[in-house]
Design a protein around this nucleic acid. Structure first.
Lengths: 236, 236
DNA sequence: TCAAAAGTGTTACATATACACCCATGC
DNA sequence: GCATGGGTGTATATGTAACACTTTTGA
């Protein structure tokens, strides 16, 4: 049986934590102080513990870097398992996407910083690939789920939300259409409150919130939906 | 640091291999002959080898159950890592979705059989959950990718394709609309040949093929696409 | 000529984009 | 009043579902 021999492997979890900061999408990373890959930037994470699954592990380890309450959504991206992806004994990694609302400003350790995703400094091991996968996942899900809730504050104006979507997607987004699409899908509701205008004047902006703050597919069955269901599929 | 201690773990791969057989979606499983979970049905897979990544491993191991040429598509579903998901030493599993064209009839070992996904016999460990994830993934991707190529023969009539889609999705599908949608997206092209009608007569059906036989997103950016791009996004 | 199966045309509907227009506030 | 930003109305484009209708064969 070629290839097998069942040397024990270690298992680690790694998270690409994304946040829109000042309209630009950023990822959290820390700078390695020791070899291998000394000086390069690595994603937060660490060894899987004996009595936790990978989801629990990544949440536990993120709590060491940022306040867990700041991480609004975590989801698995996939396994990175190239035999020599890190030097030394074999380590298989499960990669995660984590999202932080744009109004959170968690205290991070001194070796840790936010980096613009499109100006990433040299990264350790295969971590750049994980960031790419996280970006792809986020951008895809922005179009067919309510995942925006995890990037937005609890309450926000449509303008603020527009800026978040534009920053995350990397292209301009129309506030007009964003509001209409999200409202039609039942993702957005007005809080009733308004946000006073700035010094330059202008009509006060209404405040909105996401109706749900957990992941939900809002545009399932784009085609080939079951007959007779008319509108959108209902995904519980 | 709670939870950690870094006992070495083993890593296995598991595959939910799906095929539409006689219009019904089936999954490949083998019956365990020994404890634990003796007599229950398990997904094909096995230990990760030292010099292969998980993708290579699952393809290698599937080759032991079915001819590799019969497996048209393999993709990662995710990690299953509950601490005691299998008895004894800890094993972390990477689960895969595998797809076999409906005209393939691979020789499978004596302990292995195809089962209707909606009448699955008792399964071993957490394998039922993997099958559920595989189903969800397949059904979602049928609506926004060309993944149907992996379930269909090299050439087929629209009627045959309709039956495959209906079997996989679990609900009726209109041949008329299926042809139009897939054609418009550039997934389908006529081969020029026709298939003679059966004994009951009828107009001979044209034969079609998928234009590409590797996974491709054909309906990206359902909403919130970049401004001015008009039609569909181009995904290389 | 009729029944059966395949394929096309047409209409209705849903949803998204673009853009013009109206609203509410500070100065 | 006027500039500034916020929000709505409306036309247009796209794409899918439903269904009637035509085409092509075997008996």
């Amino acid at each position: 049986m070629p290839g097998t021999s069942a040397l024990p492997t270690c298992h680690e979890v790694l998270a690409a934590v994304l946040q829109v900061r000042e309209g630009r999408l950023c990822v959290l990373a820390w700078q390695r102080a020791i070899a291998p890959d000394e000086g390069r930037w690595a994603l937060p994470g660490g060894r899987l513990g004996d009595e936790e699954d990978v989801e629990e592990s990544v949440r536990r380890q993120l709590a060491e870097k940022v306040d867990l309450r700041d991480v609004a959504h975590v989801e698995q991206l996939g396994v990175f398992s190239a035999p020599h992806r890190v030097p030394g004994a074999r380590v298989v990694a499960t990669a995660f996407l984590g999202l932080v609302p744009s109004d959170a400003d968690p205290a991070v350790p001194g070796d840790t910083a936010w980096h613009l995703v499109d100006a990433l400094p040299p990264t350790a091991f295969d971590h750049a690939e994980i960031v790419t996968d996280a970006l792809d996942r986020l951008r895809a899900k922005l179009s067919y789920t309510n995942i925006g809730f995890a990037l937005a504050p609890a309450e926000f104006t449509v303008s603020a939300l527009r800026e978040i979507y534009a920053g995350a997607l990397g292209h301009p987004v129309s506030a007009t259409n964003l509001q209409r699409v999200l409202t039609r899908r039942g993702q957005l509701e007005p809080t009733g409150a308004v946000c006073p205008p700035g010094p330059a004047g202008g009509r006060p902006a209404a405040l909105f919130r996401f109706t749900r703050r957990s992941l939900r597919v809002t545009d399932a069955f784009a085609v080939l939906r079951p007959p007779g269901e008319g509108g959108r599929a209902v995904v519980p």
